[in-house]
Design a protein around this nucleic acid. Structure first.
Lengths: 249, 249
DNA sequence: GGGGAGAGATGCCGC
DNA sequence: GCGGCATTTCTCCCC
């Protein structure tokens, strides 16, 4: 595709506020929160309807460069080095971010005013895990009495807390995957916060997760905290049942 | 585009290991680390050369659904509900993840064997910040003597450490943006680690970042640590100079 | 808008 | 492979 034709197409598509997708050979310069330079290579470029821009290499799941919502674009043809180059200049005033995409070849170009107002429905998150523990406190231990969610919010972001059968205070930090050093640090912060807020020194801290790293377990024990193996709800177990339910939407 | 034609095209493109990009109206089911359902809508689908899959809505910067590298695909035509539907079944054995993309309309289809071995060059990261402090220790304070990077690695992941002019030990945690509660927790862990490893009780902890949240500052002071305002190198300041240099690559 | 924390986080590096 | 951690993290929730 000729650069002039591409220039025309992309300007029209931007005008129409369409989703733009093209493949090209390009260099990319970025300046904003950090700075980057991406040498010549063949990539997919997407400009979305909210002005988000993504540059994807032919491999890897993350965009190699991107611009956020609120970006404005200007298209220029640069003839300074003899051959025709198309330069997309992207500017995000609010984020103080700038990008130049220097394009020397275009493989294909598509644009379309796609419409999609659907929201995704996800289950199996950490919040689901906390709710499961609230409903089935025996997953932590016999006699655990969690306090209500209303009280919960009042004291901040602690996942679950309540009293054990001996009326000792319990703070629980839940992780849906692996408990690590950060998770133990987090639990420690919450336990200390509760001790201070409630003026009590006898507070149990429990890390509830399916798995824990050895270093995290050591640190947990150093602080006198406990590990309780808990899996997030519907995590890989009941595929059949769940899939049937999900198809019902 | 007819479903049959699309079916043929996508099978060929997968065979050739090309980058695949198409726009369609679809529903998406996912089951793996969590579970999700995405109702009907118009989206861009990308399958990359490493078998990564991305589903992008016409807005927002993140993919609404995705599959990682190592995914295998099978394409099926489903006639069970009268109309022809194309179903892409994605399976990642290693990650134990599964996805069904149920497509009822295709707006465009492109594929291309893009080639790109370039690596991005980034500056202004936390690592750059640590290196800057190593080179210009006076950014922390007069008389600060950082220890060598070799010793650094030996004790783990502490950004920078060394001695002040009075030979007191200093541990520095650098953040390129805002220092928050997590950063203070992290610094605290490192200070405690050093105290234990070196058998000394008098260790200064410094959080070096351009900005800090009020709560983080309070927590920092509670632990007797210090905040030092340090900006990451070349962060928004010398745009002109840097851009010139970057063009030299 | 800022603060705090999760994410189907991803990616990088080191052991 | 796991562990620890940064990320141009992004996104969400709540104040």
């Amino acid at each position: 595709m000729e650069i002039e034709e591409f220039c025309e197409k992309i300007r029209n598509a931007l005008e129409q506020n369409a989703v733009i997708v093209f493949a090209c050979s390009c260099k990319v310069l970025y300046k904003g929160r950090a700075e980057s330079f991406l040498p010549e290579g063949e990539r997919i470029v997407i400009i979305k309807r909210d002005s988000t821009l993504l540059i994807h290499q032919p491999k890897y799941s993350n965009p190699i460069n991107y611009m956020k919502e609120g970006t404005s674009y200007s298209i220029e043809i640069d003839q300074s080095i003899g051959e025709n180059l198309l330069v997309i200049k992207a500017k995000n005033q609010k984020q103080k971010e700038f990008m130049d995409i220097i394009i020397n070849k275009v493989y294909f170009f598509e644009s379309s005013c796609l419409k999609d107002d659907s929201k995704i429905i996800i289950s199996g998150t950490e919040r689901d895990m906390a709710e499961m523990i609230m409903k089935k406190p025996e997953l932590i231990e016999e006699g655990f009495k969690p306090l209500s969610r209303e009280e919960h919010t009042k004291y901040g972001f602690i996942d679950v807390f309540g009293y054990d059968k001996n009326n000792r205070f319990i703070v629980i930090e839940a992780k849906r995957y692996v408990g690590d050093l950060k998770a133990v640090s987090q639990l420690r912060r919450y336990v200390e916060k509760i001790k201070k807020l409630r003026g009590i020194s006898d507070v149990r801290g429990i890390l509830a997760c399916p798995r824990i790293t050895p270093n995290a377990l050591k640190m947990l024990y150093d602080f006198g905290f406990e590990f309780k193996m808990v899996k997030p709800p519907k995590y890989l177990e009941e595929f059949g049942k769940r899939q049937k339910r999900i198809f019902d939407f």
